[in-house]
Design a protein around this nucleic acid. Structure first.
Length: 530
RNA sequence: GGGUCGCUAGCUCAGUGGUAGAGCAUUCGGCUUUUAACCGACUGGUCCUGGGUUCGAAUCCCAGGCGACCCA
């Protein structure tokens, strides 16, 4: 598993003493010294009696200079060392926070003398910032007011070979933070908070849906025919079946099969994959939740959506109002609802419902400053362009946009009273699409026609269009109850609730191009100097 | 895909044509109330890569890599 290209794994036989190599060599030497002293540098267990945050809370009222007769055993990473001749202070960090270790020579030598008569000197010599240490002792608040564990015994649990980033400035290089997220997590507490909140959000969603009687299911990632969205798929290959497979671009079509099968409330929270560019709002693999409820329509699902997200915001951030990049966003119900036609008319002055002719619609849109309408194949597409260009960015507070044109909604049920439209909604927050739901199309004949239109686009070279999923049509022919479905982009929701500017801040290991590999070995292998 | 900006020690950053720098970390010495500890000494470099211009390039030019932001 050794990687030659890693900047932090210099060759072990490399005798030059450039910075990192020298530090690493010195620490490997300490590993040997620990072994010779009978202290394993890589321990097996350590009894932990308290997370340090619990201690900070429990002794919040302990006076400066006071000691508590309270035994604790803790473990964590040394984040900082302040060492004197016969006294040392370490800052120890566990998952919950930090606490100071008060290490005085007299106490440690008295307590550990039998095991190691040089215990304090070895502590000074053989520990470094970055090491993982176990410590047992009592609670004390120092004269300067810092809550501390007055250490009686310590043990090296894991010796660290590589230096931590600057203790004051931390790690700020964004590329390095993403590539070596473990270092980012060690030194940047707010990054740990983000991923803790992310877990709280998904847990809260599961709890909410569980209480409503939803069943969590798992559907295939590997598919012979991707569908349920318009996106380019990733292609992979199954060796023994000798066939190409695609990574799913949505969970929709399989979840609907579950509804056909009789599960009336199902959801899947999982990863989908879309073969598209990378930006602050796009990662090629991202997490969605899709949920389906039989016998409900899009009005029911809008109600569920705002109830659920309001509850999540409250439980995760402690408020229904969050600040996103300096802007206050209120998730308090009720949220604004506006039809797509109304929204576009409000921003452009154009009433697209009046058009019968595509050319007329394009002309009006262009006159209103909407770009790139030439390629639009229908009035609905022009309307959608107008919406994306003139409206989307302006929808800051949570807003449901409803009643989309059928041309851009191939899986939605026709609107019960508005010809040409479907019963669909999308949720926009801080100008971004955050959720998408609709009364599901259950008519298998209509569905086949719509998917065949998509298939024709694919034939014509549209890489984001899908073929007809025959088995899905077959499922609909057995009969799907009236159903509403909805999907949420979990990453984007987490971004808003954690005030993250980039989707990469809420994905632990975002996709990055590999750093250029060391060209030295290639140069050696290649006799030709190009 | 286009534009702008960035890449120098483990980390954070100075350095705009003339010997490669600072702080922190590391190493050594001192210190029993520190918390960006302090004091003293030292060490540490593929200046992202490859070409070019020049007596001389971290610096100027060209190409490439990776990243950030903006636009599409």
């Amino acid at each position: 598993m050794a990687s030659d290209s890693s900047p932090n794994s210099p060759n072990s036989d490399d005798s030059n003493d450039s910075g990192i190599s020298a530090i690493r060599a010195a620490r490997l030497q300490k590993v040997e010294e620990l072994k010779q002293l009978g202290m394993t540098p890589y321990a097996y267990t350590w009894e932990v009696t308290h997370p340090v945050a619990d201690l900070q809370a429990k002794f919040v009222d302990l006076a400066a200079g006071a000691e508590a007769d309270f035994d604790v055993s803790i473990a964590g990473r040394i984040m900082a060392r302040r060492v004197f001749g016969k006294l040392a202070f370490f800052t120890l960090q566990d998952e919950t926070g930090t606490i100071q270790l008060y290490l005085d020579k007299k106490t440690i030598q008295a307590e550990m003398g039998a095991a190691d008569e040089q215990a304090f000197e070895h502590l000074k010599k053989l520990t470094d910032a970055g090491d993982i240490l176990g410590a047992r002792g009592t609670i004390k608040r120092t004269d300067k007011g810092e809550l501390s564990v007055k250490v009686k015994q310590y043990a090296m649990l894991t010796k660290s070979l590589l230096p931590l980033p600057d203790k004051f400035h931390g790690l700020t290089d964004v590329a390095k933070r993403y590539r070596q997220r473990y270092v980012d997590l060690i030194v940047n507490p707010e990054v740990r908070d983000t991923f803790r909140k992310r877990a709280q959000i998904t847990a809260a969603i599961r709890r909410h849906l569980d209480q409503l009687g939803y069943l969590e299911v798992e559907t295939p990632v590997l598919q012979s025919e991707p569908g349920g969205a318009e996106a380019r798929p990733f292609v992979t290959y199954h060796n023994t079946l000798d066939m190409e497979l695609y990574l799913r671009i949505a969970t929709e079509l399989h979840l609907k099969r579950m509804v056909v099968g009789g599960f009336e409330k199902v959801f899947e929270l999982g990863r989908v994959f879309r073969n598209e560019g990378v930006s602050t709002r796009h990662n090629p693999e991202f997490t969605t939740i899709e949920m389906y409820q039989a016998y409900g329509d899009y009005q029911n699902m809008m109600a569920l959506t705002e109830t659920m997200i309001e509850a999540i915001a409250q439980s995760v951030t402690g408020s229904t109002t969050v600040t996103y990049q300096g802007e206050d966003i209120s998730f308090a119900r009720p949220w604004q609802r506006i039809t797509m036609h109304e929204a576009v008319q409000a921003k452009t002055g154009i009433d697209f419902s009046q058009f019968d002719d595509l050319a007329e619609a394009k002309k009006a849109a262009t006159a209103a400053g909407i770009r790139e309408v030439d390629g639009c194949k229908s009035i609905g597409h022009v309307l959608n362009e107008a919406f994306e260009q003139a409206v989307e960015e302006t929808l800051r507070q949570p807003t449901f946009v409803t009643d989309y044109p059928v041309e851009i909604s191939p899986l939605s049920k026709p609107h019960r009273s508005k010809p040409g439209l479907v019963e669909r909604f999308e949720l926009f927050t801080v100008g971004r699409e955050t959720a998408n739901g609709f009364s599901e199309l259950t008519d298998p004949v209509d569905q086949r026609e719509r998917l065949e239109l998509q298939a024709a686009k694919k034939e014509a070279g549209d890489l984001e269009a899908c073929s007809v999923d025959e088995d899905f049509i077959t499922a609909l022919e057995y009969g799907m109850p009236p159903t509403v479905g909805m999907g949420i982009g979990i990453d984007r929701l987490v971004m808003v609730l954690t005030d993250a500017a980039s989707i990469r801040d809420v994905i632990a290991f975002p996709l990055l191009k590999p750093e250029k590999s060391d060209s030295l070995s290639e140069a050696v292998d290649s006799p030709v100097d190009l």
